[in-house]
């Protein structure tokens, strides 16, 4: 790890210019040990009063320092936003969920092995150096929204649920704002080093949830082992049924792009329809029409299709038809 100065912030603005924010540290310290990130100054924000879950209009305001384990276990989250609990519980380990925070989880970096290996080219880590994942080991890389500069995925689960839940990110800055999760992450294009809309000096203070969506909520995660692994593909689904027809659908996908993926066209296609495998297959076709593999991750295209169909069968109450 490279040397850094350490400052413990006592207020939101008590942050030295240019200092990198640390809270849970589960990803940042790992990246610092690998010298992928080499901040000269750290500002520890864990003493700030950002660790409450409170009512906010018809929804909730989740403080940026609420730990993943506390959020997953919160009685109101479990009752009204079960998708969020499920996504959090599908991620990391008991130890890491106790450490990781809501804001930090949003800001976690990709787990692309070439991003982590400082001897390899990586446009995200070192703009202009190239992308070693294209033509390299890319089993866990993007099939949607990638670019010739970068095919890394956003690795998290929580943000995928938040995308389906239409959450917003509350940002403190000279110009405070609330950014819908749909606009928070950026696709790589030719600047994969720019991952979010966060500007220098800004800090996430909370995540805002709208009123509970109701319906059937599912988070289905497919990974290489049963626990404690990143998603190959994940599906967050909120489905409302009326008279055996789909009245409401929100679908977000993890492990397939540089951001939680969502396709309004596929959701619109489901609305008003009776659930069927044919219908679900058409929705998958729509989502995947622009999908492309890079060799090692070609399997994700049929895997996403099958995972979506299985999740929709479950959420719509269809009997599994083997």
């Amino acid at each position: 790890m490279k040397p850094f100065t350490y400052h413990r912030a006592s207020t939101l603005t008590d942050r030295p210019a240019g200092a990198t924010i640390i809270a849970g540290g589960t990803n940042l310290l790992d990246l610092m040990k690998h010298e992928v990130m080499t901040p000269k100054a750290l500002v520890d924000i864990t003493a700030l009063d950002l660790n409450r879950i409170e009512a906010h209009g018809d929804g909730l305001r989740i403080g940026a320092l609420v730990r993943n384990s506390d959020l997953a276990a919160d009685p109101v989250i479990r009752r009204d936003y079960p998708l969020l609990s499920r996504a959090l519980l599908a991620g990391a380990s008991g130890q890491l969920r106790n450490m990781a925070t809501t804001g930090g989880n949003l800001m976690q970096r990709t787990r692309c092995p070439y991003f982590y290996d400082t001897r390899m080219p990586c446009n995200k880590r070192e703009p202009g150096s190239g992308c070693a994942a294209i033509g390299g080991v890319n089993r866990n890389h993007a099939i949607l929204g990638a670019s010739p500069a970068c095919i890394a995925t956003y690795p998290g689960d929580m943000a995928v649920a938040l995308r389906a839940l239409d959450a917003e990110v509350e940002i403190e800055s000279p110009a405070p704002r609330q950014v819908p999760l749909s606009e928070f992450y950026r696709l790589p294009a030719d600047t994969p080093d720019v991952e979010t809309v966060m500007r220098p000096g800004e800090i996430i203070t909370a995540v805002l949830l709208p009123a509970p969506a109701g319906g059937q909520q599912r988070y289905r995660k497919v990974r290489d082992r049963a626990s404690y692994a990143f998603a190959l593909v994940s599906v967050a689904a909120i489905i409302g049924m009326e008279n055996n027809r789909i009245a409401h659908a929100a679908l977000a996908f993890g492990g397939v792009a540089a951001k939680p993926w969502r396709d309004p066209g596929a959701e619109a296609l489901l609305i008003g329809q009776e659930p069927s495998d044919t219908l679900f297959g058409r929705a998958a076709d729509l989502i995947l029409q622009s999908a492309g593999g890079y060799g090692g991750n070609d399997f994700k295209i049929p895997l996403l299709r099958r995972t979506l169909i299985a999740t929709l069968r479950d959420a719509t109450g269809m009997e599994a038809t083997a």
Binding site: Y6, R8, G25, T26, D30, T46, Q95, N98, M99
Partner: peptide, 16 residues
């Protein structure tokens, strides 16, 4: 255990 909760000591800075 940190305040009774399990954490990974390797990803925790002592100063924090």
């Amino acid at each position: 255990l940190l305040d009774g909760r399990r954490v990974s000591a390797c990803l925790t800075l002592a100063c924090m």
